[in-house]
Nucleic acid binder design. Structure first.
Lengths: 205, 205
DNA sequence: GTCTATACACCGATAGAC
DNA sequence: GTCTATCGGTGTATAGAC
């Protein structure tokens, strides 16, 4: 039987590629780019190190593919939000989603500004284009939220946007988790609450 | 002339050791532990790589010395605060000091929970003891600030303490700085404001 | 395409001359 | 103590057999 639309080999190839990306996604979140080796990846997905290079031509490309996939997912989540939600609600929800994603073993955006990965990403056009797209959506939401009077007018837009990025990869998550006092859901809610409402009590304002 | 209290050679030795720590401090904040090489350190301070091992027996020990010095400075700052300051003011001020320290090229506490450095520090008794000491001071301040009614009673102490740590090494600082729209002082104030008062406007509460 | 084996570079740490 | 030279180990990437 001639399969016009479903070349089996190709399907298998792409399934393996997805498996590689999943493994890298987890390894990146556990060890970070510098400490993750291609041997680690090979072992996790069950193929020899050399074979990985038939799929991705370098360690940087491999990591970039994972980060790009994350950005695509972020756009999907952003675009899939109910139309009636206010801008501030969307911002809260995207932070919540990012934290939950990390809780499930996913990489955060921007592991840090230094490091070999971030430098390599700056030369990846697909990643850059998507990052810019996400960034614009964030700034638009902040602008709307300010118009709604839902966020501080005095706080700079940049501070707000970068704070959201930073909180989504905040080590606080891992420390709270290690303590084991709070459940995953409680950690997420505590972080969202602290980010949007701050540490200071409202009564003293 | 016999110098009983100031052996010149010894003085010179310790001066060089301080220079090494300063160089490592800066390199750690720029590249992080994994990407910093002993060659980098040697070049920055102006000595050969091999000579460094006459001062510190390993890369981990070297970094640990820097982190320990930072903790000692933190204790000094905490203990040197005016007696009349309320607890919440002290917390605000220690975050402010940490951010300013980073602005001047210093390492932050806890670069991250993963990574080779953090693992090595867990075996360094001097570091551990000091870290515990600082930690206790933070928790005491949070407790006092809650008694004063100055911080949210509902937010867990752990979340508050870890958030302060995390914000002091938040990549937001570097992104804001790269943008160049805000001065260093404005960045510090914006971060402190966002941390303690949150992103959400007070009017909607 | 997947494997094993290997080339090549880098880095932490040590040895030995001065 | 400082230098240069080098060892041992590890990691990315490639080559070649199947």
């Amino acid at each position: 039987m001639l399969s016009l639309k479903l070349p089996f080999k190709k399907q298998q190839f792409e399934a393996r590629e997805e498996a590689i990306l999943d493994a890298v996604n987890q390894l990146l979140s556990e060890k970070g780019f510098d400490l993750m080796t291609m041997d680690d990846v090979g072992e996790a997905v069950g193929v020899a190190k050399g074979s990985l290079y038939k799929h991705f031509s370098s360690k940087e490309k491999l990591a970039a593919a994972v980060m790009t996939r994350l950005l695509r997912q972020t756009v999907e989540v952003l675009d899939g939000m109910p139309a009636e939600w206010r801008a501030v609600r969307r911002l809260e929800e995207i932070l919540r989603w990012s934290l939950q994603h990390r809780m499930r073993g996913g990489v955060p955006h921007l592991p840090s500004t230094r490091g070999a990965l971030q430098r390599a990403l700056m030369f990846n056009l697909e990643y850059l284009a998507l990052a810019l797209k996400v960034n614009k959506k964030f700034y638009a939401l902040v602008k709307d939220a300010k118009c709604d009077g839902d966020v501080h007018g005095e706080v700079s837009d940049d501070v707000i946007v970068y704070t959201l990025y930073a909180r989504s990869c905040d080590p606080t998550v891992e420390y709270l988790r290690r303590d084991g006092k709070l459940s995953d859901e409680q950690i997420v809610e505590a972080m969202v609450e602290a980010t949007f409402h701050g540490l200071v009590g409202r009564s003293t304002e």
